[in-house]
Simulated scan of single mutants.
Amino acid sequence: MDFFISDALAQSGEPAAGITGLIFPIALIVIFYFLLIRPQQKRAKEHKKLVSNLSKGDEILTTGGFVGRVTDVGDTYANLELAEGIEVRMQKSAVAQVLPKGAMKGSLEKAEAAAKDESGKGGKSK
């Protein structure tokens, strides 16, 4: 079994690592803090501010991909109008971002124009 442990190391009673052995784990903790923990805390703080500033009439994008206009805001829930006459109740924490005013109307006009173009092309080819 002598080939696993060198005799010189086995005879020595001194610890192999002193303060230099702690430098690497401490450096890893510092790197993780600045690269992972701190940015995540900053994003969470910004999202909390966004959700608390949510008000009636804001146009929002949800984490599920829905775009709509806020019609009512409660403590934990908000009503979202997806289209005229279609309203859903959702958790305020599901808001991904607040869109600029008029973004919902512009996107609907583009979608309707694209649908008309496609229906016109389909009718001509038949």
Rank of each mutant, 00 (worst) to 15 (best):
T71V: 12
T71D: 04
D72I: 06
D72E: 15
D72Y: 13
V73G: 05
V73T: 06
V73L: 03
V73I: 03
V73E: 04
G74T: 06
G74Q: 11
D75K: 12
T76L: 11
Y77R: 09
Y77Q: 04
Y77S: 07
Y77N: 10
A78H: 08
N79V: 03
L80C: 01
L80H: 00
L80M: 00
L82M: 10
L82Y: 03
L82A: 07
L82W: 01
L82N: 02
L82C: 06
A83D: 07
A83S: 12
A83Y: 08
E84R: 11
E84D: 14
G85M: 07
G85N: 06
G85I: 04
G85S: 04
G85Y: 06
G85W: 07
G85F: 10
I86S: 15
I86N: 15
I86T: 15
I86A: 15
E87T: 14
E87K: 13
E87M: 09
E87C: 07
V88F: 07
V88L: 13
V88H: 10
V88K: 14
R89W: 10
M90Q: 05
M90H: 02
Q91K: 08
Q91W: 05
Q91C: 03
K92T: 10
S93R: 04
A94N: 06
V95D: 00
V95S: 01
V95F: 01
A96Q: 08
A96S: 06
A96V: 00
Q97Y: 07
V98N: 00
V98E: 00
L99F: 00
L99A: 00
P100Q: 13
K101Q: 01
G102N: 04
G102P: 02
G102F: 02
A103V: 05
M104R: 04
K105G: 09
G106P: 01
S107H: 08
S107R: 09
S107T: 02
S107D: 09
L108R: 14
L108Y: 13
L108M: 12
L108Q: 14
L108F: 11
E109I: 03
K110G: 08
A111I: 09
A111N: 14
E112N: 14
E112P: 05
E112H: 10
E112V: 06
E112T: 09
A113D: 14
A113C: 03
A113F: 08
A113E: 13
A113N: 11
A113S: 10
A114Q: 13
A114Y: 13
A114M: 08
A114K: 14
A115K: 15
A115S: 13
A115C: 08
A115V: 10
K116G: 09
K116T: 09
K116C: 02
